[in-house]
Amino acid sequence: MEAVTDMSESGKYEAFMKRIEDGDKIEMDDWMPDEYRTVLIKLISMHGISEIMGALPEKEWVPKAPGLGRKLGIMAKVQDEMGHGQLLLRVSEDLMKPLGRNRADIMDDLFEERLKFHNVFHMRTHTWADAGLIGWLVDGAAIITQTNMLGASYGPYARALKRICAEEVFHAQHGESIIMALAEGSPEQRKMLQDAIDRWWPSLLMFFGPESKDTTGSSKQDATIKYQIRTKTNEELRQSFLSKYVPRIHSLGLTIPDDTLRFDEATKKWEYRQPDWKEFKQIIGNEGPKSQDRLNLRRAAYENNAWVREALEA
């Protein structure tokens, strides 16, 4: 087989697609179509920066966590979120290196609002039950989207996801443990939990993104499926979430704020009330309830510490 550099562009593209179809893994220095690189940079930067931004709503509950064990558990969890951000940003940074960009540019893109973060992390947390719910259901949703990409054609991303998913299992159980204590607790505690579910339900449905780009005008799911970065569509993932979690929520005697929610035996699909996709667009456009507060927190910390990075520049 001839060296990749000697091929024509279309030859390279065909060889590349063949590698993907054969289940080979693409590595960072390998030839790849510009579109593949662009799609990956967009996807993984957003994923990584969402982990970094996702640390903030839970961080609010670190000092308040009730008990030494809870304080330790949530500290470890927030640390993992930052750690996932580290893994993913490293993958993304390697992809953008040939374009002359690095982590400073990613942070810049976040601050200048060119790089967006996941819709759930724009929301306010109200009580300790929200901290538990994030672990249980938000991380539960994240496990579903992330395991869907474990076989991704891009090797470094697949390897990062493997590490991440292993830790998400701990996160989900950390969340379940908080939820279980509240569900089995006093009437105040149970109410705290039910309120949290009522508040977060629309955000959880939005988590998986719109069914198609007809819903919101854009969706990157088509390209990611073409390049075998993921296999299932947004809607398939949402259905899988509902199948796994609706029965669990009900089993604890909790309710879901959607009276149209039902499993249709004929189509084998969940029917549910659509969340407000206009609102989704607003939220991911950094116009959610806590979007600017959290961005400002991140901006302030970044600028405040700029002297450290400057001091240690060679």
Partner: peptide, 14 residues
Amino acid sequence: ITPGSVRHWKHKGD
């Protein structure tokens, strides 16, 4: 939605 505080970012950065 009650939007959070307004944007007040003036970037110096790295």
